[in-house]
Design a protein around this nucleic acid. Structure first.
Lengths: 186, 186
DNA sequence: TCGCTCATGTAATGGGTTACATGATTCA
DNA sequence: TGAATCATGTAACCCATTACATGAGCGA
């Protein structure tokens, strides 16, 4: 999975020019549930993108706070983005789930630890589900209101939100099943 | 998510002493669906574990092929493993899904690309689902037969298999929903 | 004969996190 | 008064992947 962040940044800059700091805001607000990044990594990647000619930056002086470095996507950047979008994903995605790893190695004799762990996770996933069901839809509407030019993208945002909702429903169902199984064991 | 591989290795070595090469086999066969690693990373991590006193190794000479370096977990290693197992997971797991990222940035005007992408993914996830339903259960039985001392762990292996099955069912459902939505759009 | 399995590792590179450093403005 | 927001970045470190290197034995 090579350098996805690069394309996330190009994707947002293809909407409109902005700074690294603003990019982080967009990532947190929209792709955060399936792709996130630290600010330091964003700055580093932007530098690479500028070096490879996919974006250019200009400095907007400010007073009282650091100057803004505003990035704009170039034609080369747009071309790379489009090519990436047109390429189908064929490789396996490598899921990594620390909970499953921990469960897997918990000795079956220690049922108490197992059940505690699962109950904590159940609560966390229920919170996330609530977020997808309540918070996210209004966030999407807010974004569309703030950026009317991106209104046609709303169905895609909704699709990714829906993915999160289904994922959490699935996870909760699995925890409940597993809890039942281990609670009823000898 | 710091250094989970370390605990995966300790977890397996807690079953029985073995080489780095054998550890890779176990990982592929059992935790592969939620935690995997390259051989080179396994060797590196084993070295760290030896340095920190959590495992020890001895060399078993062989003829015609490289000597085997067999690792054994120490009391310190067992203590760390147990402590890790007893610690509940509280942080968010950072999901990263390249498909969602790609969809998110596909211009709604390019419906054809979107639908192609989804159809390819549908096939891939159906294959994975088949694997969880058919292949994995027999793999688990095989493992239990080969290592009867680990038979009590079977319910946990089954739980992780079930997680994979539910995950793929969810993913397929989401793709089908999303396909329908975009196929029926103007 | 070709590729797989067993078996070890190193080196180069890249992606990502955490900590550090700076500093004005705004709001509770 | 203290925290959050805006805004930039560097440095150290760690985890992971890919490529490279070696080489016998075995089965199709």
């Amino acid at each position: 999975m090579v350098q996805m962040l690069k394309f996330a940044l190009l994707g947002f800059l293809n909407y409109t020019p902005m700074t690294g700091y603003e990019l982080e805001g967009w990532i947190n607000a929209s792709t955060g549930n399936f792709w996130h990044a630290e600010l330091s990594q964003i700055y580093k990647t932007l530098k690479q993108l500028e070096k490879s000619g996919e974006v250019v930056s200009r400095i907007e002086p400010q007073e009282g706070r650091p100057d803004r470095r505003v990035y704009t996507i170039t034609d080369a950047g747009k071309a790379n983005l489009e090519q990436w979008l047109a390429t189908p994903i064929l490789e396996d995605v490598d899921k990594k789930d620390p909970l499953l790893l921990k469960l897997f190695f918990t000795p079956p004799s220690d049922r108490a630890a197992l059940i505690t762990q699962l109950r904590i996770q159940l609560r966390l996933h229920q919170q996330k589900l609530d977020h997808y069901r309540q918070q996210s839809p209004t966030e999407i509407l807010q974004f569309a209101a703030d950026h009317p030019e991106l209104l046609t993208n709303a169905p895609l945002w909704e699709a990714t939100r829906r993915h999160g909702e289904l994922y959490e429903e699935m996870y909760i169902r699995w925890i409940e099943e597993t809890l039942q199984q281990f609670e009823s064991l000898p």
